[in-house]
Amino acid sequence: MKDYSEYTDQVLTQMMLRKDELAYTEIYKRYWSLLYQHARRMLQNDEEAKNVVQDVFLTLWTRAEGLELSGALASYLYTSVRNKILNIFRKNKIANEHLASLTSFIEHGENITDHQIRERELSEIIEKEIARLPERMQQVFLMKRNENLSYKEIALEMGTTELTVKTQMTNALRVLRKKLGPSTFHSAFPFL
């Protein structure tokens, strides 16, 4: 019987792509612990980390025949774990600092700037939530945020009272804080 532990990642990958279960098992043994530790550092949750790694390996096996791995196996696995974690963060609307910290844990793979991508995605989420505010509330919020006008200046421009402007702003902030979560809200609107 062959000793699969002596094969390189490249050879094991080629064998696994042909549905060699022993090659897959060797890859699993070789990388499960490393990927789990990586996921655990990012998620700070044992069960979520195990689930992420299990999902990556399940996907690797079930889609093995159709996979086109152009780079190193380690890069593919780390990138898969990273992407699953980013999806978890996105779903939970975790603040930007968590998303940016992911890149420092990538040992292999592409050197794209995830931070800029995540920042853009977060900005899009924030803008969508602002766009969902009622029209007058949105107008007050944007005048305060974009033009840095006082409540008095906004009231004059809108032809209303300062109290109405203050109430609209308070309501807008309450809605956005609820929709975005406290940490995302405060990182997005440090002026408030």
Rank of each mutant, 00 (worst) to 15 (best):
M15D: 04
N87C: 08
E65C: 10
F57D: 00
L86S: 04
I154L: 08
Q14A: 14
K91T: 14
F189K: 03
L12M: 08
R174K: 14
F185C: 03
N111Q: 14
Y151E: 09
K50H: 15
V53P: 00
R30F: 06
N171M: 15
K19A: 14
L17S: 07
N148V: 07
W32C: 01
I154R: 01
L58Y: 12
H108C: 09
E97C: 13
L173P: 03
R41I: 13
L60Q: 01
Q10R: 14
H98C: 04
L122S: 03
Q37L: 11
N45Y: 05
S80H: 12
V81I: 15
Q10Y: 12
E135K: 07
W61A: 02
R118Q: 13
D114I: 15
E6I: 09
Y7G: 04
R177V: 01
A74P: 05
H98Q: 13
E119W: 03
L102A: 06
G71V: 06
Q116H: 08
I106H: 15
A100Q: 04
G159E: 04
I154Q: 12
G71C: 13
D9L: 04
Q138L: 02
Q44F: 12
L35Y: 03
Q10S: 12
F185N: 00
H186Q: 15
I117V: 15
W61E: 08
T62W: 06
V53W: 06
Q54H: 15
N83K: 11
G71L: 05
N51R: 11
L122C: 03
K84N: 14
A155N: 13
Q54E: 14
E153R: 01
G109S: 01
K93I: 08
L12Y: 05
K84R: 14
L176N: 02
L192D: 11
L176I: 10
H186T: 09
Y31T: 03
L22M: 13
L60K: 01
K93G: 05
E21G: 06
V165Q: 02
T164C: 15
R145S: 10
I130C: 06
S80I: 04
K91Q: 09
T8W: 07
M137I: 10
A95M: 07
I27C: 11
Y31N: 05
A64N: 00
N45G: 00
N146G: 07
R63V: 03
L17W: 03
H108E: 10
N92C: 12
L99T: 00
N45K: 05
